[in-house]
Computed example of a mutant assay.
Amino acid sequence: MNECYYDKQMDFFYNRSNTDTADEWTGTKLVIVLCVGTFFCLFIFFSNSLVIAAVIKNRKFHFPFYYLLANLAAADFFAGIAYVYLMFNTGPVSKTLTVNRWFLRQGLLDTSLTASLTNLLVIAVERHMSIMRMRVHSNLTKKRVTLLILFVWAIAIFMGAVPTLGWNCLCDISACSSLAPIYSRSYLIFWSVSNLMAFFIMVVVYLRIYMYVKRKTNVLSPHTSGSISHRRTPMKLMKTVMTVLGAFVVCWTPGLVVLLLDGLNCTWCNVQHVKRWFLLLALLNSVMNPIIYSYKDEDMYSTMKRMLCCFSQEKNPERQPSHIPSVVLSQSDTGGSQYMEDNSNRGQVCNKSSS
């Protein structure tokens, strides 16, 4: 019967993995990683909070796509929390952790990153459903969207909790990986392959969308006016899709390949010296998601801009009286009551005053 090592500190497992990387990351490298990670996390908290607030605030966004977008922002926000916890438990501190604290550290990362990835996949499927039916939004009900969101988090929590629940090497020390000293190599293979499969599905879905939109554009463009063609141009969607795919490939593939190589027990691949950089690269995807999915959406961008405008005016209240009354008076001559009804929202008043 194999001996179990639940009561050991993490230094026991790090020493068995024949690596001193945890000690090497105490100088300039660790400072750079922490500084870059801190900047990323602050941006993640700020930008994803704006996305969630915009979806809640603007009724134009009360549709399935934007609910999923808000859930993606929540997953990326959680990724920032997970990385903050990691930053306080990395470097030389890693060897002082108990097994349970190390499981918590890695479980938070696995849960948050899997949630972001699964959200991207669900959004891709939702976009496919909408575009194939020539609709701006899919006909998913709120109940179905809620079930999808719950499914996303169930998958993410499951993937993060599986090692803690038993798929680890605490009772089979010879099966321990190098990058994650108490994870079984078989689990790393399962985790990396499943995520790479999700990536492949995303590629297929977006390529199908691209081919469909390109075909429809060629058929309909001679029969559409210039203004409509410009407003609904599929090239805009195509650029967004290619940006999403490019960001995902750049940010995720290197880390997943390294995990797969470690799971396959590649002793000559030297995976230890790149793991933290690839973790930062994966975190960068959570930074880029609000930019890709929000900035390229004109309504989302304008809503976030109005929110920032209002926040700025709240900090400088002396600017408000000189703008707001003039706007209200100028509109009162031509349908002022309609203006007050449609623009009683503070954010919309900010937008009028800024223009």
Rank of each mutant, 00 (worst) to 15 (best):
L117F: 09
G255K: 12
A175H: 13
C266L: 00
W268H: 02
L165S: 10
S337H: 12
D11E: 13
E314A: 11
T38Y: 10
K142W: 06
T141E: 11
G335C: 09
S286L: 10
S194M: 14
F77E: 03
L34M: 10
L50H: 10
Y5N: 00
K216H: 12
N195R: 15
M132F: 12
N48T: 10
V219G: 04
F278I: 03
S294D: 02
D7Y: 04
W191I: 01
H273W: 11
K239F: 15
V249R: 00
R101I: 14
S112Q: 04
A79R: 00
V99N: 01
G335I: 00
M304G: 08
I324R: 09
Q320G: 03
P234N: 10
R133G: 02
Y293E: 03
T141S: 06
E314V: 09
L279H: 08
V204D: 06
L245H: 07
P325A: 04
V136F: 13
V219P: 01
L68R: 01
R16K: 09
G166L: 12
A175E: 15
M238L: 08
T118D: 08
L308W: 14
G226D: 12
M340W: 06
M300D: 00
W167A: 07
T96P: 00
G80P: 02
L237A: 07
A79S: 02
T164H: 05
L69A: 09
K29Y: 01
R144T: 04
P234I: 12
V31M: 04
L264D: 00
W167D: 07
F311Q: 11
S138D: 07
R232V: 03
Y66E: 09
V250L: 09
I201H: 01
L42K: 07
F151N: 02
T28Q: 00
L220P: 02
S332E: 04
I123G: 01
S227T: 09
P64R: 10
R215P: 05
E3C: 00
V287G: 14
L117R: 05
G160E: 05
R319Y: 10
K29G: 00
V93Y: 01
P64C: 11
D110E: 11
S294E: 03
Q338T: 04
N285V: 01
L108D: 08
T164F: 13
S116G: 15
D262C: 02
R306G: 13
K142C: 10
C310A: 15
A82G: 03
S49R: 04
A198V: 09
N218W: 07
M202E: 04
V328F: 14
Q106C: 14
L117I: 11
G80K: 05
R306K: 14
D20C: 07
I189L: 06
I52K: 06
F61E: 04
E318S: 14
V84S: 11
A74K: 07
S337I: 14
K236H: 11
R306M: 15
C4E: 03
I209G: 02
L261E: 00
T21C: 12
F13S: 13
S192T: 11
R208C: 10
S178N: 08
L279T: 05
Q9E: 11
A54N: 06
V287F: 15
N351L: 13
W153T: 02
A22D: 11
S178P: 06
N270V: 05
P163Y: 12
V271Q: 09
K315C: 06
S192W: 10
